[in-house]
Design a protein around this nucleic acid. Sequence first.
DNA 1: CTTGCTGCAAAAGGTTTGCAGCTCC
DNA 2: GGAGCTGCAAACCTTTTGCAGCAAG
Lengths: 157, 157
Amino acid sequence: MNQTSPISIDFQSLKERLSSHGLKVTSQRLIIYQCLLMSDDHPSAEIIFEKIRVDHPSISIGTVYKTMETLVEAGLAKKVKTADDLLRFDAKTGHHNHIYCSNTDQIMDFDDPELQSILEDYFSKREFKNFLVTDFQLLVNGEILDKGKRIKLKQSK
Amino acid sequence: MNQTSPISIDFQSLKERLSSHGLKVTSQRLIIYQCLLMSDDHPSAEIIFEKIRVDHPSISIGTVYKTMETLVEAGLAKKVKTADDLLRFDAKTGHHNHIYCSNTDQIMDFDDPELQSILEDYFSKREFKNFLVTDFQLLVNGEILDKGKRIKLKQSK
DNA sequence: CTTGCTGCAAAAGGTTTGCAGCTCC
DNA sequence: GGAGCTGCAAACCTTTTGCAGCAAG
């Protein structure tokens, strides 16, 4: 878990990825998408906005929301949600599970081929009456024991 | 899945359950808790409010929110969240998984002892460095094939 | 040129909060 | 009688929307 993304994040490949998904290439989309790809912490729209704003003060929060929605629709990002709150995003669109720490509010990727095959095996055998399974995801909740490394990102609640 | 709750829902037992959890017994809490227990569809605060309002027009939405929060804190209810949106509630506090239909916005309980033991087995063997697993939950996404039975509850989106 | 994206500001939910009065214990 | 609930309304925050102007293809 927490490995770096295998996707190259130079603007040229991002441009190609956007246009191959039928999206117009704009500087805002490139920056937002790049920011998401460089984040391994499943940022919210607000967090992406704050990060980008440092270098691109004219960006607007509405654009971030719209772009995230567009990326999700295009299949270039996924929505993630925890037992607590807030919508957050993930550039890894392949199947994987998540670990959520309720103390620090961190979401970490949790990729384990063994678990994956256990679950796929189970679902291939299991029949659902009148229900088509499109996707499944395991969310592991718990607490990071390694204290003091991070502070809670959330604005209280 | 979709079995009726094993919890008795007469006011006397509800009173006892509330006070044994250190909560004052009020008519609003009894009604709200009873409504949640009788629901197998993981209602939102808004839905509970609408259901209750029919017979108890003086109830306020703020009370419903506060009471739900209180019940969750007391361990008498759980929060549930889907890949889409909205916070919803579940009176079943024991470990179980959920099935979510993105077409109708229904959340169904998904209790399978076989799956449960597979997962417990996996987690007992799996070690997490610096992470204490308190809970895990599988969310199955998909579509109900049995069309026409229900309409989407959600107010668009 | 035309489509569709951006920025702005206003609006729209859903949820929380402050407070006075009332209830339960 | 006092702690702690309730109802009401206002506030809050995140997200969405409408629209005029602008940029990409």
